[in-house]
Amino acid sequence: MSDRRSAAKRDPSWLAGALIALAVLYFVLVLLLPLVTVFAEALRRGFGEYFAALQEPDALAAIRLTLLVAAIAVPLNTVFGLAAAWAVTKFQFWGKSALLTLIDLPFSISPVISGLVFVLLYGARGWFGPLLDQYDIHVIFSVTGVVLATVLVTLPFVARELIPLMQAQGSDEEAAAATLGASGWRTFFLVTLPNIKWALMYGVLLCTARAMGEFGAVAVVSGHIRGETATMPLHVEILYNEYSFVAAFAVASLLALFALVTLAVKSLLEARFAQQLAAQRWR
């Protein structure tokens, strides 16, 4: 302790000041200013035009589609993430590290590729295109394609939050539960889930934010049909391209708002359950 304090004393105060200023400047330039700009541009012509832009039928369709896509992708990837993390951390099996790498893949490949693979698989000229065509099933350039691309891109979020935590926790408690005669499900819901619920929630929140905000992969498979297959990020691009800058930023601000609300919910829950959280850590 005393060592560290004397080290701090040796640093000239101007250096400390400069470093802090630099950090603040960086934060303002990279994070705060863009956020402020979105809202400033959206409200440039007042609240009337702002709300009018959000109530426009195509904007409403985009909002509905975005929520629908998130409502499908997030539960799917929550179940998948839980199952994958459970399997990877509580059991030993052949090919485990390969599975871990595969789960990470959507993080490392470009979203454009994530979209393009679906065109190559299910597009009219793709591997399964002719087959799907026979049964008149449209995957690409429809809501189904948008959902598929989003599911792929958001696949790792829950699993990636859970795996490190569950690895650190080990499987001692589950083993104890097993010796006491608990079934697999009972062990999962009474032992494992309470231990990981905060990480799980954080993973779900990140997954939701990404599912609503994904642009690249969705842009490839959507076909950009106004009011039908345009999610909010795509609708922002369409509006921007139509010189409707206020409307574009209005929809963008709503998207930013969704993200802020997601983070606020997380902070609120953390504050509300601070005691439980501490108890859990203590254990």
Partner: peptide, 20 residues
């Protein structure tokens, strides 16, 4: 009538790939 807009070549590509 629904609309989709983009670069002309890219749009032709999308129709070939199955945009209805």
């Amino acid at each position: 009538i629904a609309q989709s807009h983009g670069g002309s070549g890219r749009q032709a590509r999308a129709v070939i790939d199955g945009l209805r």
